Amino acid sequence: MTIQYKPNTLAPHFSQAEMDSMERMLSLDLPGFAFDPAYIEHVENFNGGSPLNKYFQTGNGRKLPIDRFLNYSDTKLMTDRSLQGLNANVVWSMIEDRLSLYLLPFAILPDGDFLCFDYEVEGRPSIVLWSHELSEEDEPHTTEVASNFDEFVKGLTDSF
């Protein structure tokens, strides 16, 4: 299954430089860090959109919606301020003190929680739900969602 997007919701101007900047920054603490190849392919083609098949299920059985995927656009070229605030680098810098070293947000939920890649275990990162209300400085609260990005995408549905 692929992710279908609402018309006219993709962020403009995918920037490889923005993605490279995040990779360089994360590599400082995680030597050998690399984005999941399936995610790279996805974000290069569908940068920051709002999905139609937006519902996913957590490991504990909760079904939740995605509001929007974060973008890797050059914020200086964006005219929509709301999309600027959903740039992956901007979001990471706003919440990094409540994330662990291993978490990288890639999508936001309507309630302000984020879907994150979890790089704690070597290999492809797993997908977790990060709770903004339950997380504290250096103490993130996460719930398992999927073993990798491909499994996550396969589990998305368009109905609650």
Rank of each mutant, 00 (worst) to 15 (best):
Asp111Cys: 06
Asp111Pro: 02
Asn45Gly: 09
Leu83Thr: 04
Gln16Ser: 13
Ser100Gly: 09
Leu52Phe: 12
Gly61Gln: 02
Pro110Arg: 07
Leu101Gly: 00
Gln84Ser: 09
Phe114Lys: 12
Lys54Val: 08
Ile108Met: 05
Gly61Lys: 01
Gly85Leu: 10
Gln16His: 15
Thr75Met: 05
Asp74Pro: 15
Arg98Asp: 02
Tyr55Cys: 04
Asp113Thr: 08
Asp74Asn: 11
Ile66Phe: 06
Leu70Gly: 02
Lys63Leu: 03
Phe106Thr: 03
Leu52Asp: 12
Pro31Leu: 06
Gly61Phe: 00
Val91Ala: 04
Asp20Cys: 11
Pro12Gln: 14
Asn47Val: 05
Ala107Ile: 01
Ser27Trp: 03
Met19Ile: 15
Met78Phe: 03
Ser50Asp: 14
Asn45His: 08
Ala38Val: 07
His13Pro: 13
Leu28Asn: 15
His42Tyr: 09
Ser50Val: 15
Asn8Glu: 11
Ala11Arg: 12
Trp92Asn: 15
Phe114Thr: 07
Arg24Ile: 10
Asn71Gly: 07
Arg81His: 12
Asp29Ile: 05
Arg62Tyr: 07
Phe14Pro: 13
Asn47Thr: 06
Leu103Asn: 07
Met19Ser: 14
Phe56Asp: 05
Gln57Cys: 10
Gln16Met: 14
Lys76Ala: 04
Gly61Asp: 03
Ala11Met: 11
Met25Asn: 11
Tyr39Asn: 09
Ile95Lys: 10
Phe114Gln: 13
Thr75Leu: 05
Asn53Gly: 01
Glu44Val: 08
Ala17Glu: 12
Ser93Asn: 12
Ala38Gln: 14
Asn87Met: 05
Glu96Phe: 03
Ile66Thr: 02
Val90Pro: 13
